[in-house]
Simulated assay, not measured.
Amino acid sequence: MSAKIYRPAKTAMQSGKAKTQFWILEFDAEHARTIDPMMGYTSSADTRQQVRLTFDTAEQAVAYAQTNGIEYRVIAPKEPTRKNVSYSDNFRFTRSQPWTH
């Protein structure tokens, strides 16, 4: 039984950072998914794939994994780099690409 511990990235749909402050422990798949021959549904006998545990810090998640004997790997979050962009640069005369409509 192995798991990954990570902090989710910001969703691309909105500019807010909701649901990105917690650390998540997710179990890896132990059994391959199968396709039901009659209906075509994808199913799995592994119920641990449905479990997502949330923690306030990575240390709490690591401590939980260690106390329960779970092999884990921690995926460090990538901090976004903010570019300073000015709206007036779109209309600058020395613009590198020509303006198109």
Rank of each mutant, 00 (worst) to 15 (best):
M1G: 05
S2R: 15
S2W: 04
S2Y: 05
I5T: 06
Y6R: 03
P8Y: 02
A9S: 12
K10M: 09
K10T: 15
K10V: 14
T11F: 09
T11R: 10
A12Y: 06
A12L: 15
M13R: 14
Q14C: 06
Q14F: 05
S15H: 08
S15M: 10
S15D: 13
S15I: 08
G16I: 11
G16L: 05
K17R: 11
K17E: 10
K17D: 07
A18C: 02
K19A: 09
Q21H: 12
F22I: 12
W23F: 05
W23K: 01
I24N: 11
E26A: 10
F27N: 05
H31Y: 00
H31C: 10
H31D: 01
H31N: 08
A32F: 02
I35E: 00
P37E: 12
P37C: 13
M38P: 03
M38V: 13
G40S: 00
T42I: 09
T42G: 00
D46A: 00
T47N: 04
R48Y: 08
R48L: 03
R48V: 06
R48A: 07
Q49D: 01
Q49E: 08
Q49V: 14
V51N: 12
R52L: 09
T54W: 07
F55G: 01
T57S: 04
T57H: 04
A58M: 02
Q60S: 02
Q60V: 02
Q60E: 09
Q60N: 01
A61E: 01
A63C: 07
Y64S: 06
Y64M: 11
A65N: 06
Q66H: 11
Q66I: 15
T67N: 11
I70E: 12
I70P: 14
E71W: 04
Y72V: 07
R73E: 14
I75T: 12
A76G: 03
P77H: 10
E79A: 07
E79Q: 08
P80K: 11
P80N: 02
P80G: 04
T81W: 02
T81I: 06
R82N: 05
R82G: 00
K83Y: 11
V85K: 05
V85E: 07
S86V: 01
S86Q: 15
S88G: 04
S88P: 03
D89P: 03
N90V: 14
F91Q: 07
F93M: 08
F93N: 06
T94W: 13
T94Y: 07
R95V: 12
R95K: 15
R95L: 13
R95G: 14
S96A: 15
S96Y: 08
Q97F: 12
W99V: 14
W99G: 00
T100M: 10
T100P: 11
